[in-house]
Design a protein around this nucleic acid. Structure first.
Lengths: 193, 193
DNA sequence: GTCTATAGCGCGATAGAC
DNA sequence: GTCTATCGCGCTATAGAC
C-alpha cells in the first residue's frame, strides 16, 4: 500500500481510538489490529507515539477549521451559522457507536500526560474555536439577531466550554437528543430564536 | 498507622492524581511514593485498582452532595446559591498547582476504559448535579430573579456541561480568572444580574 | 498492616531480514 | 514498506515473611 494511504489510515484509526478511549488507553497494538499491519510498521510511519498524536491533532484542526470557515464565510444568518457550528459537535456524537467525543475534549483531560508540543496544539484548537464563535456572535449582535447582555468573548468561551463538556456528559448518559436540546436552549439564551 | 487513616490518605492521593493526570495515567507506584508506603500495602487496602476508583468516587460524590445541599437549604438568594455552586468548581481550579479539574469531568473522558460500576457512579454524579441545578433554577424562576426563555432542565444541563468543560479548557489555558468571567456571564444570560 | 520479591502481562520502541 | 523477534520498562496483582 502507498505510504500516504497507510499513513492516512493509521491517522484515521488513531483519531477514532483517542476520541473513544483516550490517548493513554490507545496503543500501537490496537491500531495495528484495526489497520491490518504490524506494530513495527506503524513505528516506521510514526516513530514515537508523540509523533502520531501531533499528526492527528494537526490534521484534525485543519479539517475542522476548513469546515468552520465555510460556515462563517457563507451567507447564512448568524443564528444558522451558530447552529451549523454546534452541529459539528453533535455530528461527532452521532458517529459510529455513539461513544465518541471531540478529539480535543478528550485530550483536555489527558493534557498533563502528553508532550508539550501536542498540548500546544490542543490549546491552539481551543483558542481558534473561541475566536470563530466570537466572529459568529459579533455578526449576530451587529445584525440585531442576537440579543444578550454581557461580554461577547466570555459568551463565546462559555459556548465552547458547554459544547466540549456537553459531548462528554451526553455521551456518558447515552441520550443523544439532549445535545440538540441544549443547542436550542443555547440559542434561546442568546435571544436568537 | 491506623487502617482508616491510611485508607483515607490513599484516597486523598488517588483522587488528587486522577484530577490532575487521569485514572489511566495514575498508578499504584505514584500513590505509594506520595503516601510513603509500598505498592503491596495499597493493594492490602484496595485489592484492585477498580476498588480504589469506586471508593474515591463514592467519597467524592458524598462530599460534594453535602456541600451542595447546604447551599440549596440555605436562605441565600437563588442568584447567590447558583454563584456559590459554581464557585465549587472554580475552587477545584484554584487548588494546588492549578492543574486539577473535576474528578468526574476527567473520568468522563476515560469513561469507556473504567469498570461499569465506576462508570455508573460517574453518571450518577452527572445526574445528581443536574438535578441540583434544576432545583436552584426553579427557585430563581419562581421568585422572579431568573428571567430566561426555554426549558429549565436543558438549561441546567447546559450549565453543568459548561462547568465541566470550562474546567478542562481554562485549566489548559492557564487563565483562571476567565472561569469567574464565564460564571458571571452565565448569570447574565439567565437574567440574574 | 507493612514489607520484599516476583509473577505475568502489555506497552513503546528498535534491530535486522526480506 | 512490512515483517519477525526481542529488548527493557512499568504496570496490576499476588505470595509469603515479619
Amino acid at each position: 500500500m502507498k505510504t500516504e494511504d497507510t499513513k492516512s489510515k493509521i491517522l484515521d484509526v488513531a483519531q477514532d481510538l483517542i476520541q473513544r478511549i483516550g490517548v493513554n488507553a490507545m496503543s500501537y497494538h490496537h491500531i495495528s489490529e484495526a489497520v491490518g499491519i504490524r506494530k513495527a510498521s506503524i513505528h516506521h510511519h510514526f516513530p514515537r507515539k508523540e509523533d502520531l498524536l501531533e499528526e492527528v491533532l494537526k490534521r484534525y484542526q485543519l479539517g475542522f477549521t476548513k469546515i468552520v470557515d465555510q460556515i462563517i464565510d457563507s451567507d447564512l444568518s448568524p443564528t444558522t451559522k451558530l447552529r451549523r457550528y454546534m452541529e459539528l459537535f453533535e455530528a461527532t456524537l452521532q458517529e459510529g457507536n455513539h461513544d465518541k467525543a471531540c478529539l480535543c475534549g478528550m485530550l483536555g483531560a489527558e493534557l498533563t500526560t502528553i508532550g508539550s508540543s501536542s498540548a500546544g496544539l490542543v490549546k491552539s484548537f481551543y483558542k481558534e474555536n473561541e475566536d470563530k464563535i466570537v466572529q459568529i456572535l459579533k455578526q449576530g449582535v451587529e445584525q440585531g439577531v442576537f440579543k444578550f447582555p454581557g461580554d461577547v468573548k466570555l459568551t463565546a468561551k462559555m459556548i465552547f466550554s458547554f459544547l466540549e463538556g456537553g459531548l462528554l456528559i451526553v455521551r456518558a448518559q447515552g441520550n443523544l437528543k439532549q445535545f440538540r436540546g441544549m443547542m436550542n436552549q443555547c440559542l434561546k439564551l442568546l435571544g436568537a430564536v
